[in-house]
Design a binder for these strands. Structure first.
Lengths: 207, 207
DNA sequence: TAGATTGTTAATCGATTAACAATC
DNA sequence: TAGATTGTTAATCGATTAACAATC
């Protein structure tokens, strides 16, 4: 099967969410037209996306919600569990820990690190908080592959250096700073600043 | 000037960030090549993006960091201040309130709403927290245009109904649920689930 | 003048949409 | 069989990259 672009994958994750809602409501079937309305995308795009996974639908009847969800999920979620390490358990870090994950067994935050001594040793949502200097040792032990930067801008580079040292292969960065990282490490920057958040909204509003 | 795509605008916001860093380090000039290294983009793309704003660079010398930053900022940030209203002051809501905004006078969270009575009346980062049922009244008073959904999945639809009622024109949704919203309201969904966060990272890692 | 870097035009690539054939 | 909906092929659109001319 041909490799899917990130764009398609992120739409597929959206389809999965919506299919779960429909299944919860005991809907057995759904048409591309209805999915279009629910997602804001076009029906053609949805059929095209789904067609990458095979001939799953039935003319006149649409798709089986359950079958479609299973097929999409099987593809999107890797076979092996990926372990993640969280750096920073402030408001943002805690929000991430508590955010619902729909397949906890495939992606798992295995440890969290903090500099605040009052938080060390605590367990938030099942995840234990360690001091930052233990990171290299613990990350190796738990085989974490991806690190999440949820510390303030002033601490982020320092934390990232430790992450690199610990052998992480990917970094999800919530800190609004430019990170110096060896290029073999994948970095995904996520910007929660008002400028970014409002971007698409306000462009549409002001257009 | 031709209208810019969201893709370009979000790169422009990145350029502004990096230019600010460079200015802080007293760098007067920067080449497209150096910006390419700092952003991970190609030098051609950077020159192409910048060329949309005019002939700003000087062959052999590159761009003036200060001039470029001012021009980009002037364009990206609208003239008028946009007021926002935040719904939900839990961990995520608090993180958003505290996240650094680089032009606070252009985008401003003017009020926050909560159902938790213990939080009502408090002020977080300069923003007062009101009970949710006051939302329609207060939103009209402060002329808020965009609302941020930072409540749990189970409360999100209820909160959104109030937002629609209050006359907001745009919604930034952090809740991992599908929202029922009249189509004249712009919705931007932001997914903080591990699946989404790890998406690009893990695809790259596992590729 | 020579060399480096910008800015632009043309080519390529990928994603979306339109049209329609296949199928239940 | 008729009608509705899927799946696919071709056309369009937009974004990126390559090549190179312009300029300091």
């Amino acid at each position: 099967m041909e490799k899917l672009s990130n764009k398609i994958i992120s739409r597929v994750l959206l389809y999965i969410r919506i299919l779960e809602e429909l299944i919860k409501k005991n809907r057995a079937r759904v048409s591309s037209n209805e999915l279009a309305k629910l997602t804001g995308l076009s029906d053609v795009q949805i059929r095209k996306d789904i067609s990458k996974f095979g001939k799953i639908g039935t003319p006149r009847l649409g798709y089986s919600t359950r079958e479609l969800k299973n097929i999409l999920e099987d593809f999107v979620l890797h076979k092996e569990t990926i372990q993640l390490a969280l750096f920073g358990v402030g408001n943002l870090g805690t929000a991430i820990l508590k955010y619902p994950a729909f397949k906890k067994d495939k992606l798992n935050i295995a440890a969290a690190f903090e500099k605040d001594k009052n938080k060390i040793g605590k367990i938030v949502n099942g995840v234990r908080i360690y001091p930052i200097d233990k990171a290299p040792e613990i990350i190796k032990k738990i085989h974490a592959e991806i690190g999440i930067v949820a510390v303030g801008a002033q601490d982020s580079q320092e934390v990232v250096d430790i992450m690199v040292l610990s052998g992480l292969k990917g970094i999800i960065n919530f800190s609004p700073t430019f990170l110096n990282v060896p290029k073999e490490i994948a970095v995904r920057d996520i910007d929660l600043s008002l400028e970014f958040l409002a971007l698409y909204c306000s462009v549409k509003i002001l257009a």
